[in-house]
Design a protein around this nucleic acid. Sequence first.
DNA 1: CGAATAGTGTCTATAAGACATTATACT
DNA 2: AGTATAATGTCTTATAGACACTATTCG
Lengths: 261, 261
Amino acid sequence: MDDERTYDASAFPRFAVTVDLAVFTVRDDALQVLLVRRGQWPYEGMWALPGGFVRADRDANLDRAAQRELWEETRLGMHALASADDKTIHLEQLRAYWRQGRDPRPGQEVATVAFLAIGPDLPEPTAGGDAAEAAWRPAVDVLTERVALAFDHRQIVRDAVEEVRRRLEDSPLATQFVPREFTLAELLHVYEVIWGETLDKRNFYRKIKELGGLITPAGRQTSGRSGRPAKYYVRSGVDVLRRPIHRPESSAKQAGLWDER
Amino acid sequence: MDDERTYDASAFPRFAVTVDLAVFTVRDDALQVLLVRRGQWPYEGMWALPGGFVRADRDANLDRAAQRELWEETRLGMHALASADDKTIHLEQLRAYWRQGRDPRPGQEVATVAFLAIGPDLPEPTAGGDAAEAAWRPAVDVLTERVALAFDHRQIVRDAVEEVRRRLEDSPLATQFVPREFTLAELLHVYEVIWGETLDKRNFYRKIKELGGLITPAGRQTSGRSGRPAKYYVRSGVDVLRRPIHRPESSAKQAGLWDER
DNA sequence: CGAATAGTGTCTATAAGACATTATACT
DNA sequence: AGTATAATGTCTTATAGACACTATTCG
């Protein structure tokens, strides 16, 4: 029905487009997601994902809109020299969400494009703009409905968590949860926390090092702490792991449980 | 900046939202994508992906809008009993696309949600509605720019092809390219065509059968043709392969070439 | 020199890759 | 019987999984 593309600006219901960010970090041995408490109707007083309207006049594209919102909400973002800063946030699109009435505001329909944002242990957020509050919450609290979210944000978090868990297997996503320079123990910790499984350190280290292009030694070592110093590594190049890092059976099952809709 | 969610229907630029479909099938030993020739400005006379505006009043959600467009453009779609019909189309969201001015029509911004649609060797499309023409084209012709597409549809096809190639590895997506009942040779053919690589039949058959839950014997066999009859299988349950089907090195490299932006 | 943490090494089991032969239908 | 196609088996190599000891720093 190509005629539906015919130019007629008023022929079809118009949408507002928002971006919503599922910002994850690993803190206190848990996968945590950044939430803001809404200051107005609708869903006033409820927790929600940070996000906001795409400004067609200000934002060059969806990624930029997401970056802007991330910056405005958390003062975190993508810096000019990504590899040179420990506060760089990894950002990628998850998918778009819309169904009739997913936003209760009358007179408009709101479609949202959800983004996955990941960073190393991030500073305590400061409630920005009109948000009444901003805080890290364990992702499980959202998944288990101990924390209720506005709109369809629980579904977004569900999808985002499942995506994160899946992508630890076949992408270098885990390295986005740690600082630019990290130890193997820190990387292992990310996997264990997100999968909710303990992994064998020896097999894990071997696997990581055999995967060419995932990490490279940074030369430096930890110091000051008790015990043998740990070598630092930095992430290197690859964006697909030729062989996946398998998550244990039980973890996959747990993910299945979490993902029930 | 939660205040940006404040209800004010006129405060922000409004969008039109479209869905665009990258419909793939395997025909004539090639991965082919369904294109329509545009009947009007903009991009009149150019090939484009089928798609159209989301109608907030008619479409319950994005998937439904995509289904509707698919039906209107190709007379194909999701039937009530999916598993009982050979013409069922597998549909899933790819991602959303928008950047300033991606649609040249003045007075509005158009964001699109791209869908991946996959079906068994589909009938020749009939040009529906206002489309001047509808045809299957080899995906490579689009990737190599032998066929120019309207809007940013070449990018969408690129992303879609890469997604298809990737997902053959760790999902049962290949079974969506074949009829409900299929032979192992047909399934192998899908992999070979999409990856552009010949695979070892013996290793492939073993791998497929070892993967529990991917396929189940249908009981029936081919007949009429010369040679030993082939057993029919049907796809069964799983949506993630616990161990991926590896594509050969060279195929991955080729994908890299194709994906250059 | 003991405590704490990091970093290997080895054996076994499973899966992948290379390769050729047997099986079953049709004409 | 011959031809065409399907299906399977075996050997080798690579990777994953289970498991325990050695190495290096600090106080």
